[in-house]
Amino acid sequence: MLLTTPAVVLHAFPYLESSRILRLATREAGVQSVIAKGARRARGAQRMTLDLFVEGSAQLYLKPGRDLHTLGGFDLTRTRPGLGADLGRFAAANALGELMLRFVSEEPQPEVFDAFVAALDAVAVAPPGDAASAGLQGAWGLVAALGFGPALEACAVCLAPIPPDADATFGHAAGGVLCPRCAAERGGRRLPAAARDDLRRWTEGLPRPGALDVGTARAHLRLLREFLQQHLHDGRALRAFDAWERDPNGG
């Protein structure tokens, strides 16, 4: 079956002398593994630009039951050179890509693809020092689009409202903030009121808080990584998130 769909390159590595194997985020078919035969050698009209995070219209030859499909063509529509011009943006974009690779299946999820593209666009133009905030907004937006956005206004267990100016406890397994009574039973990570407000802004797509200092960015990234890890059951580390957390603003 030939499918033409908007797609973004998530990962690419060489295969044999002249080909590449790619992982693509697609709008119509989730995340797909494809082989681009001869892509490293092709010149002229046959050449496909298949760099990380480029966006284009992909022609996929999909065969049912196969893990690896064939990329017939890739018509470039957008590159994001800004992602390589700042190490903070680069780290954030890679974490977003990793989120897609680990959480999106081969099922079509157009709203997730659209959230991913919007997140990459925001990170690509984030001012220096603001890439962590832009990336966090994009990542929490993706989490919401994937359907497991955290509860932030009321206790995730007993639904008791939590005042917006109150510190709270974040329970990863519960899926959001906990009231004092539920927190005492279940434990969790302390979430100051200001951090909860940042989180609310990111998940609801409101204007971002300003650039985060390194300590605040690391605390938010730790919370996000632990929350994501809670939903993964393969025990594998989120390597791009680890790197992002170590150096949120790219030095």
Binding site: D51, L52, F53, L83, A85, L87, F90
Partner: peptide
């Protein structure tokens, strides 16, 4: 001249 190559060059330059 890839995104990763550019980021690496930027890191070394820094």
């Amino acid at each position: 001249p890839s995104l990763e190559g550019e980021a690496t060059a930027l890191y070394v330059q820094r």
